[in-house]
Design a protein around this nucleic acid. Structure first.
Lengths: 227, 227
DNA sequence: CGATAAACGGAGTGTGCTTTCCACTTCAGG
DNA sequence: CCTGAAGTGGAAAGCACACTCCGTTTATCG
C-alpha cells in the first residue's frame, strides 16, 4: 500500500510529470533552495521563478502555496536533521554525542537562513515533513536520557531547551549574518557549558511542550522572520 | 551653547511648533509606541497614523523617515536602558548587580517587540540616540570589570557577549511571543550560569567589537526582522 | 476680528508582491 | 508526423504599502 504523502507516493506523482515539467520542477526547487538560504523564507515567489528561469505560473502550478515549496525544498535537510541523531547516538560517550548533535544542528542553521526558521516553525499540513521533526524529537529525547544517565547532562535539562536554543541561535544567525559568521559558536559554547551538570544551579522553569508547540505553530509561514 | 541633537535643541525645536501640531506629534509618538510594541518595527506607517487619529501626511511631516520615528519613540526606553546601569552599579554585590542588569535588559526586550530589535540595531544618523547606546556600553564594561574582580564573572567574558545575548533573546522573544511569554527567563538562566566563573571551561572566541558593530549596522531599519 | 503662516488630511502616484487566467507551445503515443 | 493533452509564460487583477501634492482648515498675533 502506498500511503498518501509518503516518499513513494511523491515519486509516483513525479513520474507522471512530463520530462520537461519534471526538469522545470527541479529547477524551481534548486532556485528556491538558493534564494531561501540567502534571503530567508520570505523571499518573493517572483524572485524564485526569475532565478529558476521559469514563468511565475509554472512555479504556482507545481507549488500552489509557499508552504508546499518550503517543505519540498527542505525535505532533504530535514532528513539530515534526523540522521544526525543516529550519528550522535553512535558516539560511545553520550555527553560527546549530545554536544556533537547540538553543534551539528546549530551549524545547519548558520549555513542556511531558510532552514534556520524552518526549525522553529511547524507546517501542520505537511505530515511527512512533520513526521521527520517528530522523529528527530524522539531521537533527541533518547540522547538526553543517555547523557543524563552518565551524570554529565544536568538533570533538569528539558527537551524544550533544544527548541529554545534553536530560537536563540536563529536570532544570533539572523542578526550577525555575514558580519560575524562564527558568532553562533560562542553562544553555543556558553549554552553547552550551562547544560553541563558541572556547577548546575536551579533554573527558571522550562516552557511546557504545548506552549512551545503553540509558539512554533504561531510563526506563520509567510513571515518567518517576524511580523 | 546648544549643540545640535541635544535635548535642549529638541525642546527648542518643539517649542516652535504650534500647540495643535505639538499635540498631534505626541499622539503619533504614543500610537507608534503601541504599534511598535505589538507588531515590531516593520509596522506600517499608515497603521500608526490611523491609530494616532491623524492623517498620513501629518506623520510624514514630523517624521520624514521611519528611523526618525523610531529614535523618537524609543528615546525614553534608551534612557531607561542607560539608567539601569546605575542601579546595577549601586548593588553592593557586583555579581548580583551584573545579573540584575542582564535580567532587566532581557525583560525590556520581552515587554516590547520593537525595543527588542532596537537593541540589536544601530541608527548611525541619530547621534543622540547612539550616544545613549555608547554610554550604556561603557557602563556595562564597568559592571563587567567589577564583577570580574570578585572572581564571580568568568575572566574570558567579553562585552560582545551581551550583544550576543540580546540577539539570542530577540530570537526567543520573537518566536515564543504570547505562547510562552516566560521562555526568555529560561534562556537567561542558562546564560547567566554560563557566565559564572564556576565550572568555566574554554569557549570559542568572542566576535570582535567591529564585527558586531557591522552586524548591528547591517540590520536595516525598514526590515528589523530580517531581509 | 482679520490676516497669514502653519498645519492638516486625504486623494493620488508609484512600486512590488501574490495569484489567476488564457492564448500559445511542446512533448509523447499511435 | 500528427494530434491532443500537458505544460508554458506573461499579462492582468488585486492588494498593501511608502511617500507626495495640494486645496482646506486652524492657531496665533497684531
Amino acid at each position: 500500500m502506498v500511503k498518501p504523502g509518503s516518499k513513494e507516493a511523491r515519486d509516483a506523482c513525479r513520474q507522471a510529470l512530463r520530462t520537461d515539467a519534471e526538469r522545470n520542477r527541479s529547477r524551481v526547487v534548486d532556485a528556491a533552495q538558493e534564494v531561501f538560504a540567502e534571503q530567508g523564507l520570505t523571499a518573493s515567489m517572483a524572485e524564485v521563478a526569475r532565478r529558476a528561469g521559469v514563468g511565475i505560473a509554472t512555479l504556482y502550478r507545481r507549488f500552489p502555496t509557499r508552504e508546499d515549496l518550503i517543505t519540498d525544498v527542505f525535505a532533504d535537510k530535514m532528513s539530515a536533521y534526523v540522521d544526525a541523531i543516529d550519528e550522535a547516538a553512535a558516539d560511545p560517550d553520550p555527553w560527546n554525542g549530545f554536544c556533537a548533535y547540538v553543534e551539528r544542528v546549530c551549524a545547519m542553521q548558520a549555513e542556511d537562513r531558510g532552514f534556520t526558521h524552518v526549525l522553529t516553525m511547524t507546517f501542520p499540513t505537511a505530515s511527512e515533513f512533520e513526521a521527520k521533526r517528530a522523529e528527530a524529537y524522539r531521537g533527541f529525547e533518547r540522547l538526553i536520557e543517555r547523557a543524563k544517565e552518565t551524570g554529565r547532562l544536568r538533570a533538569d535539562f528539558s527537551s524544550q531547551d533544544l527548541v529554545l536554543l534553536l530560537m536563540a541561535n536563529a536570532g544570533v544567525v539572523e542578526a550577525t549574518g555575514a558580519a560575524a559568521p562564527d558568532a553562533w559558536r560562542r553562544l553555543m559554547g556558553y549554552m553547552l557549558q550551562a547544560f553541563s551538570a558541572v556547577g548546575a544551579a536551579p533554573l527558571p522553569p522550562a516552557p511546557t511542550p504545548s506552549a512551545m508547540h503553540e509558539a512554533m505553530v504561531g510563526v506563520t509561514c509567510g513571515a518567518a522572520n517576524g511580523r
